Amino acid sequence: MELSNEIMYQASSDKNSDFEGVFWMGVKTTGIFCRPTCTARKPKFENVEFFTNTKDAILKGYRPCKVCKPLENPDETPKGIQHLLNELEADPSLKLRDYDLVKRGLEPATVRRWFVKHHGMTFHAFQRMFKLNSAFKKLNLGGNVTDTAFESGYESLSGFNESFKNIFGVSPKNSKSEKVVDLKRIETPLGTMIACADEHGICMLEFSDRKALPTELKEISKHFNANIIQGENQHFKTLEKELAEYFEGTRKDFNVPLSPVGTDFQKSVWEVLRKIPYGTTRSYQEQANILGNPKAVRAVANANGLNKISIIIPCHRVIGINGTLTGYGGGIWRKQKLLELEKSILF
C-alpha cells in the first residue's frame, strides 16, 4: 500500500509512532530531515518532501535533525553499554562503580538513565541482580552454595543468603528445584529484540518496544512457574546466528528449537503460520480454512496476535483478505520491512 504525501504529512503532524521506519520527512526551508515523531515545530506542507529511507534523504542534500536523530535507533543498545554487558557476562562478580564507568568513557548519569528505561533499575542495581542471576543458574546446575557465594563476589555466606532470598523468595539451598527461563537482548537491523529460552528452546522473541512485552514475560513466568533471569542459554547462539543470516537474506527457514507458550488451539494456529512459505502472504481466512474451520477467522486473528515468537513464527506474513497490511505487534512499519526483505508482493 503506497502512502500519499498527505497521509505522511498528517502522520508527522500527529507524531504517529506507527509510521516510524516507514518514511522520513525532509524540510526544504531548513535542509534537515526528521523521523515522523520529531517534536520540532512542523513546517508547511508545501515545504516538505518524503523519503522511504535515510540514504535518499542524505543524497538529496538533507542533514539529520539534531532533535529526533533520524539516523539512530532509539532502542538500540549503545556500544559502550554493550561493552559493560559483555564484561558482566564474562565476570558476573564485577563491581563497577561510577569511577570505573568514567574510566571507560561513560557518563554515569547517562548509563543510569539507559538502565532505568530499558531494565527498570539503575546500573548498580542491575549489577547486583545480574550477579544473583548468575549465582541462581550455577546453583540450578548443581553448584555448591558456599563456593557459588564467594565466586560471585560475596564476602560472607550470610550476606549472600539474605540477598538471594530477598530476590528469589527461596534460600540458595532450596533454589535447585526452581526452574529458570533465560533472557537476552539481541540487536537486529529493525531494532532491539528480547529473547527468552528454557532448556527446550526459544519461548519468546519480541521487539523491545512492544507494548505487550511485560504481560508476555509474566505469562511465560507463570506458565513455567519459573524465574526469568538475564543470562546465556544454549539456544541463544543458534538463534543469533540464524537471525543474522535471515536479515542478510541468506536464510529462509529457522532450525532453532522452540518452546512456545499458549493453548493447544493457539499452537495449532502457529504451526499453520510456520508453514507459510518465505516470500508469500496469507489471509486470516486462508489460515482458518487450512485449520478446517472457515468460521474461526476472529479466533485465528487473536491467536496470531498472541504469538510471542516473532519472525520465526511469521505472523508478519498474514495480511487482510483485501490485501492490506493489518496490525502487527512490532509495528506496521516492521511488518512492511520484513515483507520487503522477503521480497513479497506488497499491496
Rank of each mutant, 00 (worst) to 15 (best):
E2W: 04
E2P: 00
E2V: 07
L3G: 03
I7C: 07
I7Q: 15
Y9E: 10
S13K: 15
N16D: 15
S17P: 08
F19K: 05
F19D: 12
F23Q: 08
W24M: 13
T29G: 07
C38A: 05
A40P: 01
R41N: 12
K44T: 13
F45D: 14
V48T: 14
E49G: 03
F50W: 10
F51S: 11
T52H: 15
T54I: 12
K60Q: 10
G61S: 08
R63C: 05
P64A: 04
K69M: 11
L71G: 13
D75G: 00
G80Y: 05
L85T: 00
E87Y: 02
L88P: 09
L88V: 00
A90M: 13
S93Q: 05
L94I: 03
L96W: 03
D98T: 00
V102W: 11
K103A: 15
G105H: 11
E107W: 06
P108D: 11
P108V: 02
K117P: 10
K117F: 09
H119R: 13
T122C: 12
F123T: 14
H124N: 11
A125C: 07
A125W: 09
M129H: 14
L132F: 06
A135L: 05
L139S: 02
N140H: 10
N140Y: 07
L141G: 15
G142E: 09
N144G: 01
E151F: 03
L157A: 04
L157K: 02
S158H: 06
G159T: 05
F160T: 01
E162R: 14
F164H: 15
K165Y: 08
I167H: 07
F168V: 12
G169D: 14
K176V: 08
S177Q: 15
S177L: 13
E178Y: 11
K179W: 06
L183R: 08
L183C: 08
E187L: 09
T188G: 10
T188R: 11
T188K: 01
T192S: 11
T192E: 07
T192R: 12
M193F: 12
M193H: 09
A195W: 07
H200K: 15
I202V: 13
I202N: 05
M204E: 06
L205W: 00
E206H: 01
F207S: 06
S208E: 12
E216F: 03
L217I: 12
S221A: 14
K222F: 03
N227V: 00
I228N: 02
E232V: 05
E232A: 09
N233T: 01
N233F: 07
H235R: 09
F236E: 00
F236Q: 00
F236R: 03
F247C: 04
G249K: 10
T250E: 10
D253F: 05
F254S: 06
L258V: 07
T263I: 07
T263P: 13
D264H: 02
D264N: 10
V272T: 09
R274M: 12
I276A: 01
P277F: 04
Y278L: 08
T281V: 14
Q285C: 03
E286S: 14
E286H: 12
Q287C: 15
N289C: 10
I290C: 02
G292N: 03
G292D: 09
A296V: 01
V297S: 08
A299T: 01
A299M: 07
A303T: 00
N307F: 01
K308H: 03
I309F: 02
S310I: 01
I313G: 09
I319K: 04
I319Y: 02
T326F: 03
G329A: 13
R334N: 06
K335T: 05
E342I: 03
S344T: 04
